[in-house]
Design a protein around this nucleic acid. Structure first.
Lengths: 206, 206
DNA sequence: AATAAATCGTGATTTTTTTCTTGATTTGAT
DNA sequence: ATCAAATCAAGAAAAAAATCACGATTTATT
């Protein structure tokens, strides 16, 4: 099913997808590899190679069907497979993510938030409740949630991660700058905002 | 000065940096390439090659000085070069970023926020004021700001980006899923949170 | 109908990145 | 003092990714 798409390719697929959404809104039905390539500053044969991976044939002199491309990118990246998740850490970033409704259309369903600050407990954020972190293990089991979005301060990141792992969380989307130590059964995806910025700054601004 | 570090390398550098911070807090003074490699699930010669790029010599049987590594990573990634920035779009994400104090220690200095919603104007967020977007061109010029952090809805992203470019903004850190069309004089760094998640989901969860 | 231009598809080539290998060095143990 | 283990350094080899190149196809134009 999932044909083991390389990370570089799936990164480009998400960019192609954004362009498809834009073209559909503009009512344009076909798109060519040179158009996309120019937009992204990459080689057009690169684009065609990627589409080949999607089993999406184009037509000479015309290009590809925007709708078909969008659908097959969504299929390949698993938009339709809904993933339930908890947000752990109800600081500003956690709240921002809880209120980010676009998650749903990409198949990410936030069920609840957690925090250890008693003042935050029972507040409703975008129809999602904030629970005390001690309630998490029970809810993980009852709801069968496997994915946690970690937005606690760096200093407590590892400790909270350990707790999540004990609670049977299998996937951690890590928004903290900590490099988490986890057993091989648990997968971590690092979203290091500052690290990302520094790459930009280093590459382009400096 | 900036030796054109490949993106892959600077990505690893940010991860190494997090580990160095952790080791310093733990009071550990040296670290070896196999230790780091195991932690990140990569090859140890990879780590040494990266450190070679930093001109940071290690010592056989001992490893590298944590402090030295941290310093040279910071130097290479330009922590000390302070970059002033405006946040454009004062929704939840914009506010979360405005309140994220860690930015400062990485050399990113948020001066103000902007929005087009009259209700938000003049609110103070973490000692930074929210201005109406119409005030931006003047402030860009007066303060010499070149970097904008774009956190508006996708639908208005291109339009706002065009306005920023007209106002003489040179670098855009784009948190919207739109693929911005910009002239070659303007650099964009895409932080597509959903795209990032989909890569994770596609690779590990599906 | 013929020609030209745009585009796809794909194999070949080049470049970049990662991994492997070996030799030298340092430290701790016997 | 000698030996074994850990580690670095650096070149070689392998793997992965990006680019190039070119033939085939389609559409528009003359």
């Amino acid at each position: 099913m999932s044909k083991n798409i390389p990370e570089k390719v799936s990164n480009r697929l998400t960019l192609y997808h954004s362009i498809m959404v834009e073209y559909i809104e503009a009512g344009i039905e076909t798109i060519s590899s040179p158009q996309i390539a120019q937009r992204l500053g990459i080689d057009d044969s690169q684009v065609r190679k990627d589409f080949k991976l999607l089993n999406n044939a184009g037509k000479c002199r015309v290009g590809y069907m925007v709708k078909d491309l969008k659908d097959s990118i969504e299929k390949t990246l698993g938009f339709s497979k809904t993933k339930d998740a908890f947000i752990v850490g109800s600081g500003h970033l956690g709240l921002a993510l809880a209120k980010y409704d676009s998650f749903n259309s990409y198949g990410l369903n936030i069920l609840a938030l957690f925090d250890n600050d008693p003042q935050k407990i029972d507040i409703q954020v975008n129809n999602k409740q904030i629970f005390h972190i001690s309630k998490l293990p029970n809810l993980v089991q009852r709801l069968g949630v496997e994915l946690a979005i970690l937005t606690v301060p760096r200093q407590s990141a590892q400790q909270v991660a350990d707790f999540l792992i004990d609670s049977n969380i299998k996937y951690i989307w890590n928004f903290t700058p900590a490099v988490l130590k986890v057993p091989p059964t648990v997968k971590v995806w690092n979203e290091n905002l500052m690290g990302s910025f520094l790459q930009f700054a280093c590459k382009d601004i400096v």
